[in-house]
Design a protein around this nucleic acid. Structure first.
Lengths: 194, 194, 194, 194
DNA sequence: TATGAATGAGCCTTCATTCAT
DNA sequence: CATGAATGAAGGCTCATTCAT
């Protein structure tokens, strides 16, 4: 179990470093130093740099998947709202997480292995959103005249756009407004007006 | 003027390479080869790598600012629609442009010089959008109960999100739908309903 | 302590190379090869070329300061004679040492850090010579009508001139004569004649 | 004749640059710029860098040989004194000349062609000194019990030592004293005392 | 496991030199 | 002659990775 702790520490240090310097500027030696060990020791835990990056990706995606999904039995709209709330909270609490995530996202464009991981996550998220939307329509909370897939796409674009904002280092207040506005926007589009 | 052509060719090759391999993986030698010259010759046109990257940034931003702004005397909503149309056209025609742009955007997070360039562009764009929105409210086309700055932020998040989609290499059709949906979404939120 | 040995080997190789090719022509790669290692390994012991050069300077000056100062309780004139003897021995045994030293001396003209090191050495040597001369005058061995500082300067010029002779690669015999002549010259000038 | 002027300008610029940055740091492009022309143009006057350096050597030696040799019919001792006077004047007027000269002297150690040039000069100078000394002994001005060759060597060492002092950038006053002292030293050794 | 040493591949940059105009 | 462009060789330095202890 100590082994696992050690790996965790390394991956954490790696994420910080990626957020700080980008994948460009990401150096195995620095990660090791930052994790309090010799660089050669680090390579006992990860066979090479690529493996470390992949572990970072896994960790990032795990974290992304992690929270979310609230308890209780929320209505579809509450479920969606919760997703936005969750995003806001993350953006506020740990913006550097999103910096690293964007970095990974770009890398995925060229690294098939990372692309696959990311795709898995997106698919599972898309799946979840789809089910929520469908339920919303079924229970009459959402307008029935929108294509489900389209709604899901819309939401994902919103999230991506908001995630990119993390790079702007704007104040927490403004970020909160931006998230709220997007939710509001969505609501106006899919909520049944009566 | 041949000098200028040569520089153009280099910058173009550089953008392609950045899109292809990222700023990580961006090698002066490759750019030179790709532009059909010795790497030392390239440094004849740009004093060093950093200068080349900056030229790329300038070119990218210039291109971004470039088109847009249509002719005639469009209504505010037509003006906004045109922006989305324009984005769609670009995404379709030259997706790698957006890949490079995202790359630069991430780099701006750490490179103050690039950050400044980007900020200039964003400010000018924000300025333009603000004027359009204000006019739309003034002429009664847009709802008066939305904060202008908030609307502008919303649009910028939408564009960023859509830009990131370029990385997914989805088919042109689906991208078109995504852009249209976002425009639709925006319309539902700010257009005066009667 | 092996580490220290390795550094020593590198510095020695560096001195040889400087003597052979000058600071112009001084290549890290060559030093490494000459010391039997990869050039990257060398940079494991010295962070960069400049640091290596400085180590060379230190070593050279250390060596210069090193020997000298004989045992027993010599008269002032014997002390001076010993300095010349010592120089002669060095010139004979390791002429390339002086080649490197001249090289460094020229570099000091432009490199403040080296200039400082050299100045320290010269000051300490000047200090020593001053004390010897003063004692010589006090005990009546040297003529009292010469300014001490002037005598010291004279001696230093002599040493510098003799050191430059190392470049001529003349035979050991002739060098010996030259040193002896300078000592003789000095004696005629400062020794009390009776 | 304009051609000759141009070459002169280039060589002068080259000497200044060598004095300023050493042969290490000596760049064809800089010389050209400093002489007010394109670097490629410079290579119309000197086929390559080496040729330029050799021209510098020639010029330096020419200058060294140049002055000297006074008019009238001086006594041997006056002739020697004049040499020292001349050196003093040069050291005072153009110390950077000696910096460049030392630089060349070191280079001669490895460059046979330069070595030969230097040797020619030294031989001719040695020849001149020899004749002066012999005459001095013949006319009874110098002590007859010194070996002529030895005296000549002594003088040359003195000159070399004084030349190296140019690097110390000491004040003119002190340099003057040093030269005078060496002359004095020499006089005490060879002048017939009566 | 842990680590310091070692290494080869590779990158950016410099520079003397060549060449076409 | 003059010059801007071009080039190849080389140099200092970095870095992921391997290895012996």
């Amino acid at each position: 179990m100590d082994n696992s702790n050690r790996r965790q520490a390394i991956v954490s240090a790696a994420i910080s470093l990626i957020a700080e310097r980008g994948l460009e500027g990401f150096r195995v030696r620095m990660v090791a130093t930052s994790a309090g060990m010799n660089h050669a020791t680090l390579l006992h835990y990860f066979p090479n740099k690529q493996a470390l990056v992949e572990a970072v990706v896994d960790q990032l995606l795990e974290q992304l998947r992690g929270e979310g999904r609230q308890h209780g039995d929320p209505s579809p709209w509450e479920a969606l709202s919760h997703e936005f709330e969750d995003l806001k909270r993350r953006l506020d609490r740990d913006p550097s997480f999103f910096v690293a995530l964007n970095e990974i996202q770009l890398r995925a464009y060229r690294d098939p292995r990372i692309a696959r991981s990311l795709q898995h996550l997106y698919e599972s998220w898309r799946h979840y959103l789809t089910s929520v939307i469908e339920r919303g329509i079924a229970v009459g909370q959402f307008r029935p005249d929108r294509a489900v897939a389209e709604i899901v796409d819309v939401i994902m674009v919103q999230f991506r756009g908001l995630g990119l904002n993390a790079l702007d280092q704007v104040d927490s207040k403004r970020m909160e407004t931006a998230v709220a506005a997007q939710l509001n926007l969505l609501g106006g589009w899919i909520l049944r007006q009566d």
